[in-house]
Design a protein around this nucleic acid. Structure first.
Lengths: 220, 220
DNA sequence: TGCAGGAAACAGACCGTTCGGTATCCTTAA
DNA sequence: TTAAGGATACCGAACGGTCTGTTTCCTGCA
């Protein structure tokens, strides 16, 4: 996915994409980058092995097929992204609302990366048969985990309807990601932050924070 | 795009996708459906001409290349979608805010169509090289027109910052579209409507409408 | 210490298929 | 008669995937 560089050491040990010099790691890393940048269907096996510096045999011994490689990449990507995202909004402490208010500044940093290519899950669903649930299922699993964490924070925050608020924030997140992908303008995150502020403000027990939150976001 | 069926007669005459029995019209229609359903790169020329019932020669005589066909499809799709969308929120009258509140019920009807496959522009950008601006430019042009109309309504509504409000609504629209594509659950539009109500309510001169708007949306 | 053995990754030719695109000839209806 | 479109055979390139064989390097025993 190409998360902001604060990742690195937050990454899981065993089969993580980055910092893995093995053939498997290099293949996952190369495939991930090419899939995200150019699309899955537009990326041929030869380009992947060339960038990974492995032989074609190795790829098929390790993953069996391109389809399996795609799934492995998405799982690895998703795991890494979630670890980065949750780390980014959790680290720094503060109350639950402060953590939720860190969502869009964190996304803005991601959007600004030169290797930001949108959400691999959304893109994968978009370029495959929408009547098959293969990729939609993987994407939903990913989104469910993220949504769960947001909902937990919304609940701790004392939101009157944590599930609804979490879904609303998730919509803003998805919208910001695709808008940033299309426009290549990280500042869409500021607009999303402003909207999130409106959603967070009125429903919390300390509504006067809303204004502060917006000013805070605008300064990012 | 597969807009809700209320379209049909709202469509522009000359090169519209639907209701065009010429080879060009059938090719645009077939290509449009296959591109949206299965992805652009995953759709071969042979599948298009088979569904259109034309010869390969005809396609290349009319469009020259697959790339040109893709662009023609996107332009045609975009034009048709915008006509449907603007028609859906404008028809029925009411004040500007009432029109803005019709956005997500309209989208919900679209999401519920069996041939809803997400936004062709977002999907097209997602499955191509993100460092090339070819598709991003087309997508931005489309989004700009839609945004312009929303901003005009926001301005007429008396919103304190019409541009900001329009961008926020646009984020919710994009978010709802991709969420509906992934989840195949039209009710994400209700969540988006609720969020839109929060954004519209507090900033308008008649804030007591917010609650009504939400209840109204929930009943859709 | 040195060397046999074996797994892992290497290179790259090769397979059948499908891709986007072209050329040629034929049909048909205004 | 003429032009739009249909049918089909074909092209080179690229696709996903398999094959044979080579290099590299670690291990374990003498």
């Amino acid at each position: 996915m190409g998360k902001p560089s604060l990742k690195k050491k937050v990454v899981a040990p065993h089969t993580a994409v980055s910092d893995d010099e093995s053939a498997r790691g290099r293949l996952l890393s190369a495939a991930s980058h090419l899939f995200c940048k150019n699309g899955i269907n537009a990326t041929g096996i030869d380009a992947i092995i060339e960038q990974a510096g492995t032989a074609k045999t190795t790829l098929y011994k390790l993953f069996g097929s391109k389809t399996n490689l795609v799934q492995a990449v998405l799982e690895s990507e998703g795991k890494q992204w979630r670890e980065w995202f949750i780390g980014a909004i959790e680290s720094g402490g503060g109350d639950p609302q402060a953590k939720l208010e860190r969502i869009f500044p964190a996304l803005k940093a991601w959007f600004g990366e030169e290797r930001f290519y949108g959400c691999p899950f959304i893109n994968a669903v978009g370029e495959h048969d929408k009547d098959q649930k293969q990729f939609r299922t993987i994407a939903l699993k990913h989104k469910k985990v993220v949504l769960g964490h947001i909902e937990k924070l919304a609940s701790e925050m004392g939101a009157s309807e944590p599930a609804v608020l979490a879904h609303q924030l998730a919509l803003l997140i998805d919208g910001a990601i695709v808008a940033a992908m299309v426009s290549r303008d990280p500042s869409v995150a500021d607009t999303a932050a402003l909207a999130a502020g409106s959603l967070l403000g009125p429903t919390t027990k300390k509504p006067k924070r809303a204004g502060n939150a917006q000013a805070e976001f605008a300064a990012v």
